[in-house]
Each structure stands twice: as C-alpha cells, then as structure tokens.
C-alpha cells in the first residue's frame, strides 16, 4: 500500500506538475537545489503534521468553521517550522525569505486538509501528507536542478559544467516560468502517450 501511495503522490497526482497546486513557492524557491530541497522538506513537515491534527480533530470541528480551524492548525506548524529554521538553519531561512511563512497559504496544504484529512483516519492522513509532500519536494528538485545548472552553472553551490557560461535568465523570473512549462509539458506528454498508446 505504501508503494502505491508513493507512486500516487510523486507521479500520478504530483501536486505541482499534475495538480498545479503550490505554484508560488515552487517558482520562487527553485533557484537552487539547496533552496528547493529546504522548502520542500519544510512544507512536507507542515503538511504531515497538519494532516494528522486535522484528522485527529475532524469529528470535533463543526463544518461552518472548518476553514478557520484548518488555518489555525496549519499556521501553528508553519510558525514552529519558522522558529526552528531561524534557530538551526538561519542561512536557508534567509534564502527562502517570505516564502517560509507563505507555506501557510500553500494551496496544497489547505487542499489536502479539506479533501483528505478531514475525511480519513489519522494513519492514512499521515501517509497522504508525507507522500504529497515528497511529491512536492521531488518536483521542486527537478525544477531546481534544471534552473541551477542552466542558470548559474552550479549544483549545491559548486561549479558543474566546464567551459559553460550560464544563461542567467533561468534563475530569474522568466526562467522559472519557462522551466515549469516545459517540465509540465513533458510530464503531460508522457502521460498522454501512456494512456493513448
């Protein structure tokens, strides 16, 4: 079952590349792999924890105030992640900037709380949170690798290809858009081929 879930989160229903959720942080933080990984793992932590707690409280939360309640739960974990990052990973916190607190409005987390965690038991919600988060991180890493290598000829901050002058546009705004367009296009093409063939 776990294998199936993993495949679902990372490939079939990848939050960024298939569901097109959580776009803001993915374009902004995919300028280098360290940033992308950091953001992905932070979001995964928040997603897993909030899924668990929403599932825990799902019978107690009245329907009318469920969105504010979800927001409070998510915001709590985002703040905890923020404080932990400021204390133990200050360099990463500086690089990610306002996108760490913006995890609270990441459509993926609210979306999963609403669509899954409020309707399923704790264990399943935890697994869902983890695999969706991993899918998010995975997509972020793909985008980051492309952008960092093409845009600054570096990987993890170290030079990569000899005699290659990087195309700076890839680490700037337009590059983000182009990269995600092509990666999405490739994913769709592969899916279409798989289905239509």
């Amino acid at each position: 079952m776990i294998g199936e879930e993993l495949k679902r989160g990372i490939i079939d229903e990848n939050p960024i590349l298939v569901l097109a959720l959580g776009l803001c942080p993915s374009l902004a933080t995919s300028t280098s792999v360290t940033n992308g990984l950091g953001m992905g793992l932070a979001a995964t932590f928040v997603l897993a924890c909030s899924n668990v707690f929403v599932s825990l409280l799902r019978k107690a939360i009245p329907d009318k105030v469920r969105i504010p309640c979800f927001i409070v739960v998510i915001a709590t974990f985002v703040t905890i992640v923020q404080l932990l990052m400021k204390a133990y990973l200050p360099a990463l916190d500086k690089q990610l900037g306002i996108f760490v607190p913006l995890i609270v409005v990441n459509c993926i987390i609210l979306g999963r709380a609403e669509a899954y965690a409020s309707k399923n038991n704790i264990f399943r919600s935890l697994i869902d949170g983890i695999v969706m988060g991993l899918g998010f991180t995975f997509a972020l890493c793909i985008l980051s690798v492309i952008r960092e290598v093409l845009g600054s000829n570096k990987l993890f901050g170290l030079k990569f290809i000899p005699f290659y002058q990087p195309m700076t546009v890839f680490i700037l705004a337009p590059g983000g858009f182009f990269t995600i367009a092509f990666v999405m296009g490739i994913v769709r093409h592969l899916k279409n081929r798989g289905k239509g063939a």
Binding site: A20, V169, L172, A173, P174, G175, G176, F177, F178, I180, A181, F182, M184, G185, I186, R188, H189, N192
Partner: peptide, 18 residues
C-alpha cells in the same frame, strides 16, 4: 497537445516576465 492549457500559459507568463 502536451502544452495545451497550463504549460502554454506558463510560457506566456514567462515571456511577459521577460
């Protein structure tokens, strides 16, 4: 077909950003 919908919108946004 692969670029229909969102991907082409992203490329458009990229050109605007440029």
């Amino acid at each position: 077909k692969a670029l229909e919908g969102l991907p082409i919108a992203f490329i458009t946004a990229g050109l605007m950003a440029l």
